Simulated assay, not measured.
Amino acid sequence: MAYRRRKLMGEINIIPLVDVVLVLLVVFMMTAPMLTRGVDVDLPEASSQPVATQDEPLEVTVREDGVYLQKTRIADPQEKLVPKVRALLEEQPGQHVLLRGQRTVDYEAVVVTLNLLREGGIRQVDLVTKPTDT
């Protein structure tokens, strides 16, 4: 019995590759908005330079409705912010903090939050502003 040899196909089927790429595209499009840090806030304008840090900084935001640590609202900052900051410092000593204050919030609220951060052991705090249009 004679076997016939199949003719080799010289084409590449790229349909499975396109399917995988489209699935990855959808996954990345859905996760990208979730990667943004911090709480939405209207920052004051000031001429300043960007901060260069190697580690990911801790973001503290002061708004009219309260103080936020990353995206979590702190119910009673006077009582709970200092212990939370101390716990974070135990995990990552020398933690760098970015303090973001709503443009319309009282200056006193930002200063009180800054003092609470210092009381918690944070030594390096940078104030975040929106760059001015030059």
Rank of each mutant, 00 (worst) to 15 (best):
Arg5His: 10
Asp19Lys: 15
Val21Trp: 13
Arg118Gln: 11
Gly120Asn: 05
Lys80Val: 05
Pro16Ser: 09
Leu35Ala: 11
Leu99Glu: 00
Glu64Val: 07
Leu17Ile: 11
Pro57Met: 07
Arg123Thr: 09
Gln95Pro: 00
Gly120Cys: 06
Lys84His: 08
Arg118Lys: 14
Arg4Ala: 09
Leu43Tyr: 06
Glu11Ser: 15
Leu89Asp: 01
Val18His: 04
Thr31Ile: 14
Asp133Ala: 12
Val111Cys: 04
Thr113Trp: 06
Asp42Val: 15
Val128Leu: 04
Pro131Arg: 06
Gly38Tyr: 12
Glu79Pro: 03
Thr104Ser: 13
Ser48Val: 13
Pro16Glu: 07
Leu98Met: 11
Asn115Trp: 05
Gly38Arg: 10
Val110Asp: 09
Pro50Arg: 13
Gly101Thr: 10
Gly66Phe: 03
Val18Ala: 13
Leu99Asp: 01
Glu64Asp: 14
Val82Tyr: 13
Tyr107Thr: 08
Val85Asp: 03
Val41Leu: 00
Leu22Ala: 12
Leu81Trp: 04
Val128Thr: 06
Arg123Glu: 11
Lys84Glu: 15
Leu17Phe: 13
Asp126Glu: 10
Asp65Val: 02
Ala2Glu: 06
Asn13Pro: 00
Thr36Met: 09
Pro93Asp: 10
Val51Tyr: 07
Lys80Arg: 12
Val111Gly: 00
Gly120Thr: 04
Leu35Glu: 06
Val97Asn: 01
Ala46Met: 14
Ala32Asn: 10
Val27Ile: 15
Leu127Gln: 03
Gly94Asn: 08
Arg5Ile: 09
Thr134Asn: 13
Pro83Trp: 03
Glu90Arg: 07
Ile15Phe: 10
Ala2Pro: 06
Arg63Glu: 00
Gln95Gly: 07
Arg123Phe: 04
Thr36Ala: 09
Val62Cys: 05
Ala2Gly: 04
Val67Gln: 02
Pro57Glu: 05
Ser48Glu: 07
Tyr3His: 09
Thr132His: 01
Thr104Ile: 10
Gly10Pro: 01
Leu24Ser: 13
Val128Gly: 00
Gln124Asp: 10
Ile74His: 14
Thr134Phe: 08
Val18Leu: 15
Leu99Ile: 05
Asn115Cys: 04
Arg63Asn: 01
Val21Cys: 12
